[in-house]
Design a binder for these strands. Structure first.
Lengths: 340, 340
DNA sequence: ACTGGCACTCTATTAGCGGGAGTGCCAGCA
DNA sequence: TGCTGGCACTCCCGCTAATAGAGTGCCAGT
């Protein structure tokens, strides 16, 4: 048996009510609150079917119904009406973000903004190095055998690394190094640099080869291997809303997962441009986050993506609202980046 | 009536047992577990006195005793035997920290290490800008009217800011600016720089005054006003150990407090060199952290302090162990910094 | 000054008992 | 065929009462 329109309507009503009240919803309450135009008994029949199909379930016999992950999925995929942001929210974004002075500032403001608007845990990934281009490389002399390598990318990220040299180096050599490195690498996407760095070493005259090799290895590490993705997190206190009812009794596993950068990156990574992804319950493949959902979106200037951001909350969350907010914030940040 | 030795011994026993079991401790259990050499009845009398004096209390009539904040305070001040780190812990520190590549790395490793060793929430402050000295200032041309200012300090911090110029600038001018700024500021403590920056502007010839003024204001902001203290946090999941029994039922206020940088800075700031500070219960003056204690210590090369670090946990915590760990880690990080 | 004994207090646990919400099913009706 | 009202049934939740147990305070005795 397929699901006719009314059954879908019933599912939507169940999701909406449950999200709001946090309590299993019964047939009587449903017809009272929504104008379904049918009697509770009819709704009960529909519910039986929805349960059969796996979209809702009863916590125990003779309790109301609760949506399953599959139910939320269906709700998100087919029943969500796009909910435009309220003017108040638009203004909040504006007010919150205006005056950001640098990348760190932008990221921090964004993550707090997201947490505040959605009242959930927010995660923002710094613009990914691998998707950025080198704007400038700077070498600063620390001592005769130590340089500091500073890389500035077009997305505003600044990475620094210490380089230990095999032999002392003079100022002139540093000049030369700096010039050559910049000539070769400035403007290049980081993904394209390894080959160029290799060439750089080969083109170096033998007497300076040692120094260059050293620098090159640090460069590679900084540019590619390390490719360390940075993250900002905010709003963990929001996990405690709704008692400890969500997250089956303990926040522990969730908090643990939130401490693992690798996990967070997985949650908000690999996004399609211009879309907002929703991972419901164990769709995220992470045991600790069985009862959590993640709404995430890529951001970047134009239609490119340089990083991801998103929020995490209980599966029982306000999907339409959250999706709208995440999307709006992602777009805003992208535009902000485009201005630089 | 003053407290004789045995009463202090009883207090110590109560604290130790309570910390371990998380349950109010009674007179019978005390004499069983500790060789006090007296009967439960005697211990009861001592307890009555200790309660009178405010060092312990009963959750309810006819329950065992629990230490009060004052009790913990006395315990920490007079009863704590210095507990040396186990070789395993020493090795853990070594193993954890070796191979750190830059400041970010050091800070992140440190905070995770602390969280892991103490099994509590750890906080590490980045070396404070105001206590650092300028090593080098770099100006990178972004466009003809935009420079990026990069400051590198002797503690390894790298700060960057965008400078919007009032008029286009040529490469030669950038060279000149860079040279003059470095001549004036390199090697100076950040605290001493504002006057120097002022002088720098005054010494500039009129036609370049506008540009320099612009740069100077950003400099001041970066060097002093912003003086943004950065923090790293780890181990929030440890808050859930011991159920939600600590922290009177909800983690909410604690998690909220942990999100406020200002609060965290207050907790681990203003430290004396070479000491470890313990704030018990509401000694920390923060409502949300009534039932939390903070053990913190300053770190830096030698006996100087460039930043603070510490851990936060329930008032019912293992003070001797925590103090020893925090102190050891602080010293280790200080030594690490001294090497650069 | 310490000890054993004893009565007392209070909590935590368990069991028992409606009240109530919600269901599934069925027979009747459009 | 699909919807409805009625009805018996199930199970949770909250309440009360009863009990066991831990721990205390006090007192008289050594």
């Amino acid at each position: 048996m397929s699901l006719d329109d009314r059954k879908l309507e019933v599912l939507r009503a169940i999701v909406e009510d449950y999200v709001e009240t946090q309590e299993p919803v019964g047939s009587k309450a449903l017809v009272d609150r929504h104008k379904l135009g049918v009697s509770p008994a009819t709704v009960r029949n529909d519910m039986a079917v929805l349960e059969e199909e796996g979209y809702i379930r009863q916590p125990h016999t003779s309790a109301g119904r609760v949506p399953t992950d599959a139910g939320y999925r269906l709700f998100v995929d087919r029943l969500t009406k796009i909910k435009p942001l309220s003017p108040a929210e638009r203004r909040a974004i504006e007010r919150f973000m205006v005056g950001a002075v640098d990348l760190d500032d932008v990221v921090h403001r964004t993550v707090r903004l997201l947490a505040q608007l959605t009242r959930q845990v927010a995660v923002v990934q710094y613009p990914s190095l691998s998707r950025s281009a080198v704007r400038h490389l700077e070498l600063v002399t620390i001592s005769t055998t130590r340089l500091m390598l500073v890389m500035i990318t077009d997305t505003g990220r600044v990475e620094q690394r210490l380089v230990e040299l095999p032999a002392p180096i003079g100022d002139g050599d540093v000049w030369d190094l700096r010039r050559r490195v910049n000539e070769k690498l400035a403007g290049q996407r980081l993904a394209d640099t390894p080959a160029l760095v290799q060439k750089l070493v080969e083109e170096t005259d033998p007497e300076r080869r040692g120094t260059m090799t050293c620098l090159a290895s640090v460069l590679l590490e900084t540019l590619v291997e390390r490719s360390e993705e940075r993250l900002a997190l905010a709003g963990t206190a929001n996990l405690t809303r709704g008692g400890v009812l969500d997250f089956q009794g303990t926040l522990r596993p969730v908090l643990e997962a939130l401490e693992e950068e690798v996990i967070l990156l997985k949650l908000i990574g690999d996004l399609e441009p211009r879309t907002t992804r929703v991972l419901i319950g164990d769709e995220n493949q992470i045991d600790n986050l069985r009862s959590a959902s993640v709404v995430s979106s890529g951001y970047g200037p134009g239609t490119t993506i340089v990083g991801g951001l998103g929020v995490l909350g209980p599966t029982r969350m306000d999907y339409p609202g959250t999706i709208a907010t995440v999307r709006a914030v992602a777009r805003y940040v992208g535009d902000l980046l485009a201005q630089n």
